[in-house]
Design a protein around this nucleic acid. Structure first.
Ligand SMILES: Nc1ncnc2c1ncn2[C@H]1C[C@H](O)[C@@H](COP(=O)(O)OP(=O)(O)OP(=O)(O)O)O1
Ligand SMILES: [Mn+2]
Ligand SMILES: [Mn+2]
Length: 600
DNA sequence: CATTACCTGTCT
DNA sequence: AGACAGGTA
């Protein structure tokens, strides 16, 4: 089996770096970024390494940080109309993504400050050319299982890297390690490019899948990178608490430890797939069985931009919203931000959202949401539609909200690409197509197929989901679920009498009240084709599937690998069990690793 | 009384 | 498709 080469690049104390670039006086000083209310100095969401040295951590209050570190510089997240605005960090994140895209590989934006890369093809191309890699090319690289015990840290690191290089030359029977070597060199170059072009430092993990690359990225920070040779997985797992693994950090991790009586990842390997499936459901069981062996088949999806745009705000305790006026006010404010970001997104990505989701909660821990079809994107429309959706589910009497609202959120999603964007219509994903590149800049499918019904939209089978739900069901005091024809447009029940809507006749909107109009048709806003209104949603889904495979952003000229990619990678993920290797026991453990993973 | 933001899987 | 739980940054 030929392993993929996957890297995870994560920015160092990202929000702090953004603030330090804006205000260079802060460079070299302890900094933390705080968000929300003035209450006790605000809550900390990012801490730079100088401040971490004095024990300041995320979740702390500004006041506590001042105690631990009197010289700390607390920077507040910008606030607009009493609402945190994190746009500057999103914009900075885009800069980074743009640099990464100069390298020829599939890039998956995983959060505001990190991205997964599939370097498999890029590495192969690189090996086709020059092949020499020396320790000089890997000045900030660490290799799991090659830690040296030398007093001098840097000397030890360098010696360990050289040791690894000696053991992993191109002539080895398998080339897994050699390909990691080449990848490590590329990632060194990429990180340097990120720094040169943005001024930000970052760290990276390089391994054969997403879970492992993410895991090792955190081992050496800041401004360093860590490689995990496949043969060192058992060694790594020996001292690795299960909750450190992505997706096991929550309830699943807890029940895993509880039900199996284990603490470290190495202990997971002795359970049969059948037992894991029986205890944690089929899907989770297979995933666990695989990850216990260092196997994770989740693909790096070529996606550079978020799938949804939203914002929200909490109103804890007595600040809960109690009147319709308050509610309207905050809906307006949220709509202002969403609208502004939406306009920008349209300019940059030429897409429009088809869905609007309003979320709210009436007590801590509860949550409710209502979804509606979206056809207008100006602020008043967003606010109006959101209010209508909300009013369908909560009861208001005499301008008083029956149960005070403690949380309110607006988000839009299910984007479709704008038509008429010459050249973009022809791209239609065809499941049976053999070849397609997954490099972000070019997703080429063989013969472009026009507007045809498409089976099998890309199957999304992310790992993990949860059986726990049934163990502890939420108390359903919930909604009066009187509304809601699925897939109707946003429209109030109150309007019923006078159908206020006037100018929207050209829009694709439906109201389930109009029982007699189930046969009515309207032009699809995407393709113009006449479609039954009640089928519009399903129809639009085909466009959504299309959008998933559209071309994302136009990276500039490739810096490193000059060749455009042409070959294919599998798109569909499968959970394949694998009976495999795992070269038994590196008996000895390195303390530094142990303490790294056990601390905190 | 951490906060805001995004993603995925299951159930219906 | 929509509602919701769970997970992560
Ligand atoms: N729980 C949170 N709530 C709000 N914002 C968060 C939260 N966690 C992280 N962020 C923001 C601030 C971080 O700078 C940014 C990236 O997160 P993350 O990569 O986990 O840490 P970091 O970049 O600050 O430090 P590190 O150097 O350890 O990566 O996302
Ligand atoms: Mn980070
Ligand atoms: Mn991160």
């Amino acid at each position: 089996m030929r392993e993929r080469i996957v890297a995870l690049v994560d920015m160092d104390c990202f929000f702090c770096q953004v603030e330090q670039r804006i205000n260079p006086e802060l460079k070299g000083k302890p900094v933390a970024v705080v968000q929300y209310n003035k209450w006790r100095g605000g809550g900390i969401i990012a801490v730079n390494y100088e401040a971490r040295a004095c024990g300041v951590t995320r979740h702390m209050r500004g006041d506590e940080a001042k105690e631990k570190c009197p010289e700390i510089n607390l920077v507040h997240v910008p606030s607009i109309n009493d609402k945190a605005d994190t746009s500057r960090y999103r914009e900075a994140g885009k800069e980074v993504i743009n640099v990464i895209c100069q390298f020829n590989c599939a890039v998956q934006r995983a959060s505001v400050d990190e991205a997964f890369l599939d370097l498999t093809e890029a590495v192969d191309k690189r090996i086709g050319g020059e092949t020499q890699v020396s320790a000089d090319h890997l000045p900030s690289t660490h290799v799991v299982g090659f830690e040296s015990q030398l007093e001098n840290k840097e000397e030890g690191r360098s010696e360990a890297v050289q040791e690894w290089l000696r053991k992993s030359d191109a002539s080895s029977e398998d080339d897994h390690d050699y390909r990691l070597v080449v990848a490590a060199k590329m990632v060194e170059e990429m990180r340097k490019a990120i720094f040169t072009q943005t001024g930000f430092t970052c760290s990276a993990g390089i391994a054969h899948n997403k879970i492992l690359s993410k895991l090792v990225c955190g081992m050496h920070k800041p401004n360093q990178q860590t490689v995990l040779p496949i043969s060192k997985v058992p060694f790594l797992y020996e001292t690795l608490p299960v909750k450190k693994v992505r997706l096991l950090g929550g309830k699943l991790g807890d029940t895993l430890m509880e039900k199996l009586g284990i603490n470290y990842m190495s202990e997971l390997e002795k359970f049969s797939e059948a037992e894991l499936c029986q205890k944690f459901e089929q899907r989770n069981g297979q995933w666990l069985y695989n990850i216990a062996r260092g196997i994770d088949n989740e693909e790096v999806e070529a996606r550079l931009i978020p799938k949804s745009i939203g914002c929200c705000k909490r109103f804890p305790g007595k600040t809960a919203l109690k009147t319709k006026q308050e509610l309207e006010h905050w809906i307006q404010e949220l709509a202002v931000e969403v609208c502004a970001r939406l306009d920008k997104d349209y300019e940059e990505n030429c897409r429009r959202p088809r869905n609007l989701v309003v979320q709210w909660s009436v007590e801590v821990g509860s949550s409710n949401s209502k979804t509606g079809f979206l056809s207008h994107f100006d602020q008043p429309s967003l606010a109006r539609d959101a209010m209508i959706l909300l009013c369908k589910s909560i009861s208001i009497e005499n301008s008083k909200v029956k149960v005070p609202i403690q949380f309110l959120g607006l988000s839009v999603g299910k984007f479709t690409e704008e038509r008429n964007k010459a050249n973009s219509i022809a791209k239609f994903f065809k499941p049976s197509s053999a070849s397609e590149t997954k490099v972000n800049e070019t997703i080429v499918s063989d013969p472009p197929v026009p507007e045809v019904k498409q089976e099998a939209p890309p199957i999304k089978t992310g790992p993990m989901s949860f059986f726990l739900r049934n163990l502890k069901k939420k108390d359903p005091e919930k909604n009066d679920a009187r509304v809601a024809a699925p897939q109707t447009s946003v429209e109030s029940d109150e309007d019923e009498k006078e159908s206020v809507k006037s100018d929207s006749d050209k829009d694709v909107e439906t109201d389930k009240r109009c029982q007699g109009e189930e046969e009515a048709e309207a032009p699809c806003p995407q393709c113009g084709k006449s479609v039954k209104i009640l089928d519009m949603s399903e129809h639009l889904d085909h466009h959504v599937a299309q959008e998933l495979h559209k071309e994302l952003n136009q990276p500039v000229t490739p810096v490193i690998p000059p060749q455009p990619s042409t070959s294919a990678l599998p798109k569909k993920r499968k959970y394949t069990k694998s009976k495999t290797q795992s070269a038994g026991g590196d008996a000895k453990k390195i303390r530094s690793i142990q303490s790294f993973f056990n601390k905190k």
